[in-house]
Design a protein around this nucleic acid. Structure first.
Lengths: 331, 331
DNA sequence: CGCGATACTGTCAGCGCTGACAGAATATCA
DNA sequence: TGATATTCTGTCAGCGCTGACAGTATCGCG
């Protein structure tokens, strides 16, 4: 596996190292015949450029860091299907544009966790997935570091460039749908301290406030399957059940449906349930989950596009995609 | 964000660059006072080592490549919950040991896709997730490249170091359980060309062959939710339904259950269904999925441990973990 | 006081590659 | 034919860091 280096390749071809380098990087000032000969030799001898050396020299690594901060949901991590969908999209979008993907899950400790990643010189830019509880830390960096984009909630006056859905509208959509079904006693399941969830609840609550005789409440619930199931079960044991639910994520919705079923409550007859995300599995639950869709593939492409634009020095703005209500059987 | 370099740090501290370097890497031959002073200054000025330069010099990158070859299941990709679980475990295990994670999904084109990753000099070692249809390509590399481990099926006489469950036993477990329930007409859902699936079917079939009056067949089905659902629906429309199913993955099992439900077949009364993997969602389907468990977290740790041992030059062997039948409601 | 041992610190080459610059070879034209 | 433009190729410095080696200061001890 001793791969042939540029020096040896040049020696084989009988040219100087830099001619070889130029030939391989399609520099225009190299004779066509020479280039073709060198490229052929490179192929033949299994030559491969040492990316590390190239990166050092060019001050450009060709890799993008995808960073997942795990603030209040340490366990949620990568197992969350929504993250996974996004990650898959990012992997594709980056590969398509010739970038490598550096994956980092970080439990933020101290205020400098982001600086560390940036200054390591390993990546040309950063895509943050989710803001977790690190809004200020992120904001501080965003002020001075251009090469970063964030999936999450947009904030007025923020320096962060974010891509995400319009969470307020998403919450509204869900509320209107539940109200239209005749639900009177609604609940929002999720931790409203996370920026995105807080927006979802805001829209949810606002729409409900306008309706007659409809009440709503918040049940703080964690994001993992197990936690959500346990917490929902406990909640149902101690409180009367609502008749309509917006869960902050599809995973929560699925766990809630299980807890409801075990308590003998029928979905959607007794309790209508709406999820959020439209993960792949959403259509495969029983009953199939009605949910607010976020287009992760499109979002991933957008994140990459905006990041590369920023790296190229262009000015770009945040994007809020429109969420869409996908009506299935659960509400 | 102009991070302080080693040169400037040394200047600030009034020492030579290499003393600074030594101080920061805990080299023993540096006076304690000096070290502490330099470390404090580094902290204060937000110094961060340039990993690229360090990697070039040390010929060691501190990064491990996690490579997902997408041979016959181009779309399966990262959205598959099983992969995701494994990836999460790998991210944790690598981080814990101070390595970064380089994620690569590759559609193998030509025989050299693996060489490219290795020779780029970007990673110190490779963890391959799944063998896809690339057994020979992998084997060719494995012969000469030590720093690689593979999640997948073990093969006798192979140079690959693999971690995986004993798929033959897994298939057997499922078959015995279905036979014990009284199923007579069994089906294996999945593409038996993938090495792991082929082993699962082998065990499944072997156990059935020993039983009286029980038949089995293979229904080739793809790995994604949508494909599996579509193919299963088509199959049921054209053929009589089996009364017991082993799906090659939980995702296939879930899609199959949906297809069965839509045809009016009850699970497990009419058709007993067993999945494979025990993904997080398996307990949350309706009915809850009976499945063969693979412990991905343990597997991820094992992969990392073996890889690091190989990098350190030790000789290690492949590991087959014992699968476990998790009985829930679907069979 | 002188000598070697001990304990640090500095000097220097170079990891493999790139690109500005200069130099060589060839073509173009009066 | 010589002068100039054009096209290609080589030379060289250096990206930021590390570690072998050499050098200096301090100490112990006869």
């Amino acid at each position: 596996m001793k791969s042939v280096g540029l020096v040896e390749l040049a020696k084989i071809a009988g040219v100087s190292v830099s001619t070889a380098s130029r030939a391989l990087s399609n520099h225009p000032r190299v004779a066509r015949g020479t280039r073709e000969r060198i490229v052929a030799l490179a192929q033949e001898h299994g030559f491969r450029l040492n990316q590390t050396a190239s990166a050092l020299r060019k001050q450009r690594t060709g890799a993008i860091g995808v960073v997942v901060p795990l603030g209040h949901e340490v366990d949620q991590a990568l197992s969350d299907p929504f993250f996974m969908g996004l990650l898959g999209g990012l992997a594709d979008a980056l590969t398509k544009r010739g970038y490598d993907l550096f994956l980092s899950r970080v439990v933020p400790q101290g205020p400098r966790w982001l600086d560390d990643i940036i200054a390591s010189g390993r990546v040309d830019g950063i895509i943050l997935i989710g803001q977790s509880d690190q809004l200020e830390a992120i904001e501080r960096i965003a002020g001075s570091y251009q090469r970063m984009v964030v999936w999450g909630a947009a904030r007025l006056g923020s320096d962060q460039i974010t891509v995400g859905t319009d969470n307020v509208t998403g919450g509204e959509l869900a509320a209107r749908h539940l109200i239209a079904r005749g639900c009177k006693k609604l609940a929002f399941l999720g931790n409203p301290e996370a920026p995105e969830f807080s927006d979802r609840y805001k829209g949810f609550h606002a729409a409900i406030a306008e309706a007659e005789g409809v009440t709503d409440m918040v049940v703080p619930i964690h994001l993992t399957m197990e936690d959500a199931y346990r917490e929902m079960t406990a909640y149902l044991a101690a409180n009367p059940a609502p008749d309509g639910i917006l869960a902050a994520s599809d995973v929560i919705a699925m766990s809630a449906m299980r807890a409801l079923a075990e308590r003998g409550l029928r979905v959607p007859e007794d309790v209508a349930v709406i999820g959020y995300d439209d993960i792949l599995l959403a259509g495969y639950t029983t009953p199939a989950l009605t949910t607010i869709r976020q287009d992760v593939v499109y979002g991933a492409n957008l994140l990459v596009e905006l990041l590369l634009a920023r790296i190229a020095g262009q000015n770009v703005g945040s994007v809020a995609m429109l969420p869409e209500l996908i009506v299935r059987d659960s509400a």
